[in-house]
Amino acid sequence: MRYLMTTISTETTPAPDERLYAEMGAFIEEMTAKGILLATGGLEPGGVRVTSQGDEITVMDGPFTEAKEAVAGFALVEVRSKEEMIELARRFRKIVGDGVSEIRQVFGP
């Protein structure tokens, strides 16, 4: 089963440093080599919002002030079980420090 894990930075989330880059790099490498991590990446803070209402479509540039906690990164992961996903998230959080990760199962493709 596949899961999408999104990561949200909070006020206490530490700024990335050398150690974080090194540990995260090793972790991503290990998970990719095991065939677990399918895709991952960081996200720009702002972005563009496209909204449709009735026949009208509005396009708006970010950042969006109402979103205090923005999604900073994602990982698409293939695991055997939800428990395995949680275990991976646990390892990930140990590396990045304060913050929140959300896990949702992906249906499809």
Binding site: R80, S81, K82, E83, E84, I86, E87
Partner: peptide, 14 residues
Amino acid sequence: TDLHGAIDAVWKLE
């Protein structure tokens, strides 16, 4: 929650 599941997950990975 569900420690059994967690231990099983660790086991399968390690």
